[in-house]
Amino acid sequence: MSDNLNIGGQEITSRLFLGTGKFSSNRLIPKSVEASGAQVVTVALRRVDPDFEEENIAAYVPRGCILMPNTSGARNAAETVRIARLARAAGFGDWVKIEVITENRYLLPDNYETLKATEILAGEGFVVLPYMSPDLIAAKQMVNAGAAAVMPLGSPIGSNRGLKTRELIRILIEEIPLPIIVDAGIGRPSEAAEAMEMGAAAVLVNTAIATAGDPVTMAEAFGLAVKAGRMAFLAGTDEAQEYARASSPLTGFLRD
């Protein structure tokens, strides 16, 4: 049976999404994609430079990947919308990962501005994946605004601190009818596996791979960990059973 993830009508085979910032060379991007098996790759539009092919980060994303531009650097909904439209005009398709950061100490997302941008861009036909603080109420509003998935942070971007928001993410997994993709903060493959075991639909990793001593091997390790975590979830860990089981093997007979 296929266990593909479906976002915005696209079948996605790999549940590891890859970020492209922070690498010591863009040449490591295709190698990391290949080693990890990642299919969705995010690129900051601010770094894309079609005028300079050799240094153009987007040119290093292998064909066949879904290139998801992100709005890194946007400080409010208006800037976000502008950047998303620029990305679409540049030929990047309809996917967009929304990042709205209004404080530069921890780079925590601004859920309110993110929501406003999600609503506008979903209305324009974008497949919108908002990066957000894992707040249930805000996530429900993202659903209503037309988000295609929800991307809560595990801990602050680049912090490699792991799933510090575990309980809040667990609630999103239980309550939100969209794919929950844990984005930011995952520092180790074991933490990616943990998110997948909990029932996350996917994880997005950048810093932990890009700044590793050997990024390509680390990318492979993350690819394996995400697969393992997903398998464990499907196999039914105690935790997953407690929260996610749809059928009722013990009392189901009472419905007859």
């Binding site: 010591s24 863009n26 601010r46 770094r47 430079d49 240094e55 502008r82 620029l86």
Partner: peptide, 16 residues
Amino acid sequence: LYAQGYQPVYKDWQMA
């Protein structure tokens, strides 16, 4: 920079 294992970034912002 490349020799030191660092990437030179020529572009890091765009709004128009």
